[in-house]
Amino acid sequence: MSTHEDVLSSENLPHEPERATLEGKNKFMGFWFFLGGETVLFASLFGTYLALKNSFGDAEGTPSQELFGLPLVFIMTVILLTSSLTSVYGIYHMKNQAFKKMMVWFTITVLLGASFLGLEVYEFNHYVHEFHHTFTAHAFGSAFYALVGFHGAHVAFGLLWFLTLMFRNAKRGLNLYNAPKFYLVSLYWHFIDVVWVFIFTVVYLMGKVG
């Protein structure tokens, strides 16, 4: 059994520090289940989006084919996918107990995530001002912003989580107590990434086609 001091010490970390303690194992598993629940959440949002896509009722609206501009969305996709890759490097260095390198890669991840978020804000702003495609204009708008916005909120939360962890542990280095936390946030980041791939396909590509 480990005592307080063991958990917070940076010495002699095992190869998989995120799962070395019972608490870590619980967190690891609980988080996977949480992501299962998140999947249902996004599935519901996707279902609703598909049902309400291009549905304007009596209101005026721009159909998805004219609304979306693929180049911007493509750049966003590349940025987010890259950030997922950089977080993998972060975890790779965590397992090798290279704390500084890990922090560098996570910093890059955060920067990429922030630029994704910036582009998304720009995109929404563009829709609102050029097409009056707003949340309240019609059901299509509601469903679009709900789905993409929920994802955006997840990105924002992921960034905050990364930043909090990095600031809190900047001076402490890696230990058995915070290793699971770093691992989970990167897991979360991958999940966000996967959801985006679906959004890119279902919302943007399929929206452009038909």
Binding site: T48, G57, A59, H138, A139, F140, A146
Partner: peptide, 8 residues
């Protein structure tokens, strides 16, 4: 307008 028929 998720459930408002007039607005789609």
């Amino acid at each position: 307008n998720f459930f408002v028929p007039e607005m789609g």
